[in-house]
Design a protein around this nucleic acid. Structure first.
Length: 568
RNA sequence: UGCGGGAUCGUCUAAUUGGCAGGACAGCGGACUCUGGAUCCGCCAGUCUAGGUUCGAGUCCUAGUCCCGCAGCCA
């Protein structure tokens, strides 16, 4: 079965690459990189950049590096490096031996700084952070030159060497590029290149007490690696003149930076800072909470890497602001899972059903198809007996219009089993709650076919009570109740948009016995309900399933529409 | 009269670079169905505004409007 690819085949980045190729720039090479800062876990937004960079390289027969932008030892940790490597691999990409770190280039970057000092293009500045801010000017007014701007090359060389040697206190001096304090582009107003920072770096330890700023590391890192097309998000657009300035003054390989719009998705936040806050304040169980938009969370939830890649391909890439309907993500997920997830029957909200005319000691093993989309996935046996569970929602004592399922006197099909007719309803005397159904089955309908050709309007899933295995099932809803989670009333906190019902835990769910021993990560479809995945918390004794995504639910839509009608 | 970007169906994104505004998601309707799933078919719906150039403008020109980013020794 081939799915037609409707994704846009063209975008502005490909246009640029095609032009460059046509002009025989870079000897026809295409070399990209994915440059995460190891200060948190990767999320769905990072996946866009990953798919773009690795995808473009693959498409043009080029290469894509994985490079950690680790220039700030205060924020970065080895734990994050590990998780990022795992997540990029999981997404399905490979960088061979091209795993790099900006910190690999600290020595080189230091040499670059010296070179700029020697050229009179950089100087050591003794202004405090506050003073630098004050003299930077504003968006509409030019800045003022630093009093240290005209130090001699010799003095700058000496001071910078002593900064490196640890002679000065943290924050007491910086190295600045000598560009233009009156530039309309604030990034060009003598930006800081190096700061003094006594912090242990996750890779270089205590070797350095000065660290380059991102702006003095990123462009040169690209250059060193021979990156031909350096893709980044829009907010770096006005940093490009600065990178180009460094590259030009240094006379090193010029990468071409291309900026694209990050992909926002409804009901999702992708701010690393905020995600960390959710973790640290315990709003979620961790970075890999299945409600998190992190790749580790989505993996645990049951997302496939294919569905994520497909999603970003469908979305495409452009420069305009965007807010993608999360329904598209879920569509890509379902589309993928539909083809590969084996079907099973599980009852989430059990309602006991006694088949009065089925003998007590009888058990039948019935044939069930594993995946109607893929005959190669074969069949399995499911046990049928006198006492069953069906979904509580599948019975209505007083069925509304268009409700086709079980009701008193009504006949339905039990999937792969028999036609049954409801002949009795047992209720709790006090609460009035339906606690048990009595039904008759038609022995002639074994397997689910009526020899007389009579039709039923519904097919229900079920589980044999005596054979059922119990499990905990976790149902998820959007983590945020608002389509735009950052939109708040008044001065309310963004966390006030957290959806209090994003997790619903069901216990004593009844699963068909074939699920016994299912291991974490195992994905399947609970028929008529959705796609589910065995959670990391699951064990042999205590099975735990996550609902990855529900199936499309036409009845829910009809019912909702009916309710709306009644209201009006 | 700071600098830099961006405006195409409800949403995301195309348009052979001046030549029939197309696709996907969502929504709605229908067909089919042993999952109210899947699948199939159909419908709805768009070029920010005003001028101009042109046989012809989403695309080129002029003037506007609106939106986003930038004042970390963060990335």
């Amino acid at each position: 079965m081939t799915t037609t690819n409707s994704a846009p085949s063209s975008n502005f980045i490909k246009d640029i690459i095609a032009e460059d190729l046509k002009a025989n720039k870079n000897e026809g090479r295409v070399h990209t990189r994915f440059p995460p800062e190891p200060n948190g876990y990767l999320h769905i937004g990072h996946a866009k950049a990953i798919c773009l960079n690795f995808g473009l390289a693959a498409e043009y027969g080029g290469l894509c590096n994985l490079r950690f932008d680790d220039t700030n030892p205060i924020k970065e940790e080895a734990e994050y490096v590990e998780s990022i490597i795992e997540d990029v691999r999981w997404l399905g990409f490979d960088w061979d031996d091209r795993l790099f770190y900006a910190s690999d280039y600290f020595g080189k970057l230091y040499e670059f700084a010296i070179l700029l000092i020697k050229k009179g293009k950089a100087y050591v500045c003794d202004l405090s952070a506050d003073e630098i801010r004050e003299t930077r000017g504003t968006l509409t007014e030019p800045g003022k030159n630093s009093p240290y701007r005209h130090r001699s090359v010799e003095e700058n060389l000496d001071l910078f060497e002593r900064m490196r040697a640890g002679e000065f206190e943290d924050g007491s001096r910086v190295l600045r590029a000598k560009i233009d304090m009156a530039s309309g582009n604030l990034n060009m107003r003598d930006p800081v290149m190096y700061r003094i920072l006594r912090a242990t770096h996750h890779r270089t330890g205590d070797k350095w007490c000065i660290y380059p700023m991102y702006d003095f590391a990123h462009g040169q890192s690209d250059s060193i690696e021979g990156i031909t097309h350096s893709l980044c998000t829009l907010e770096f657009e006005d940093h490009r003149p600065l990178y180009d300035w460094f590259i030009q003054k240094l006379g090193i390989f010029p990468s071409r930076q291309i900026e694209f719009a990050r992909g926002n998705i409804t009901y999702i936040i992708t701010s690393t800072r905020r995600l960390r806050q959710l973790v640290e304040e315990g709003h979620v169980s961790g970075w890999d909470d299945p409600r998190m938009p992190t790749l580790s969370g989505m993996r645990r939830r049951g997302y496939t890497p294919e569905s994520i890649r497909r999603f970003w391909q469908e979305v495409g890439v452009a420069k305009r602001e965007n807010n993608i309907d999360i329904a598209l993500l879920e569509h890509c997920l379902r589309e993928d899972l539909n083809l590969r997830a084996p079907r099973v029957m599980s009852v989430l909200h059990p309602l006991r059903v006694v088949i009065d005319n089925y003998s007590e000691d009888q058990v039948e093993e019935l044939d069930a198809v594993n995946n109607p989309e893929d005959p190669a996935m074969g069949k399995r046996k499911v046990p049928f007996s006198r006492i069953l569970y069906i979904e509580r929602e599948d019975f209505r004592e007083d069925p509304p219009k268009k409700f086709f399922r079980l009701a008193p006197g009504r006949e339905v099909r039990l999937r792969y089993a028999y036609y049954i007719r409801c002949v009795g309803v047992v209720k709790d005397e006090k609460t009035g709650e339906v606690v048990e159904l009595h039904c008759n089955y038609d022995p002639a309908t074994r397997g689910g076919w009526a020899p007389d050709g009579r039709k039923v309007k519904a097919t229900l899933h079920w589980v044999s009570a005596a054979h059922a295995i119990e499990a905990e099932v976790r149902l998820y809803d959007h983590l945020f109740a608002k389509e735009d989670p950052s939109e708040v009333e008044g001065d309310a906190d963004w966390k006030s948009n957290l959806n209090p019902n994003s997790l619903e835990t069901l216990t004593s769910c009844k699963l068909e016995p074939s699920l016994a021993g299912a291991k974490p990560g195992y994905r399947c479809q609970f028929e008529r309900q959705g796609y589910f995945c065995v959670d990391l918390d699951s064990s042999e004794e205590n099975l735990v399933f996550n609902r990855t995504v529900s199936l499309r639910d036409t009845w829910a839509k009809i019912e909702k529409a009916q309710e709306m009608k009644q209201v009006h």
